[in-house]
Amino acid sequence: MPRTEVATAVVDLAGVAVRYGPPKRQVTAVEGVDLRIEAGEFVVLVGPSGCGKTTLLRVVAGFERAATGRALVRGSAPLPGRGAGVVFQQPRLFPWRTVGGNIAFALARHGVPRAERPARVAELLERVGLAGTAGRRTWELSGGQQQRVAIARALAAEPELLLMDEPFAALDALTRERLQEEVRSLAGRLGTTVLFVTHSAEEAVLLGSRVVVMAAGPGRVVADLPIDLDRAPSADLPTLRASPRFTHLRTRLTELTR
């Protein structure tokens, strides 16, 4: 994809370093990271535990600040909740609200009229395989079901930028595949820009238009692999998995992450 001017990138990280602790005992989580994500790209971060994948995602979300370097989202410093949907490893739902209430809260924040919210809630719950659960309490659901509610909440406003930190790790295989299909289809249909963290080479190749490989000690980018598979919403995942090109890319990525 041709590079454009800095201001047009949805995400622009240049020389980013993140450090924790007092000056004499600082730990460097990531160092010297450059990463540009253009509109509509689906960028997946992979690498071993402790390489800084989640730290970078938190910088883009505005939850962490870079010690040095530049971090911009649409040309401005990242701020929590400004135009990005975030799905964490844990659901982080409001326990005092119902399942539907959690999703309706996100719809209200994004200006969806009250009269339209019940239908939108029902539609989103159907998407994640939880139809009919709007009136239930979150603590009545399993951990995997709660994560599906969190994904529905993040999708509620159909955000321009979606940040996902291993969102499917706690789900069973069938639900994981269903939600991979849903997120991939949504991103392709709406042109959503996605930054996605995973440990799975297969998931990375399946979802990403690019895969960025990180290494630890400190966290840094060591490879940026374009994924030239069909990302049209109509392209089904089983067909992609069966293609020789998918097998080649998955093998290549596995080699890069060793």
Rank of each mutant, 00 (worst) to 15 (best):
A7V: 09
R19N: 03
P23S: 13
P23W: 02
P23C: 01
K24G: 11
Q26C: 04
E31D: 15
D34A: 12
G40K: 04
G50Y: 02
T54R: 01
T55A: 07
R58S: 14
V60Y: 08
A61D: 02
E64H: 14
T68M: 08
L72H: 13
L72W: 13
R74K: 14
A84S: 15
V86E: 02
V87L: 06
V87T: 08
Q90I: 00
P91K: 11
R92H: 15
L93A: 04
L93W: 10
R97G: 06
V99H: 08
G100H: 10
I103P: 09
I103G: 12
A104V: 00
A104M: 02
A104R: 01
F105M: 11
F105H: 12
R117M: 11
P118A: 07
A122I: 01
L125I: 03
R127F: 00
V128N: 02
G132R: 12
A134T: 03
G135E: 14
T138P: 05
T138L: 04
W139C: 02
S142P: 10
Q146I: 01
A150K: 05
A152Q: 12
A154T: 10
L155H: 10
A156I: 11
A157H: 14
E166A: 06
P167S: 07
F168Q: 10
R176H: 01
E181T: 15
E181G: 02
V183W: 11
S185W: 14
L186H: 14
L186G: 00
A187L: 10
R189N: 00
L190W: 11
V197F: 03
T198L: 03
H199G: 02
S209N: 03
V212H: 10
V212A: 07
M214C: 07
G219A: 08
G219T: 10
V222L: 10
P226N: 07
I227A: 09
R231K: 14
A232F: 03
P233F: 13
S234M: 00
R241D: 05
S243T: 03
P244D: 14
T254F: 00
T254P: 00
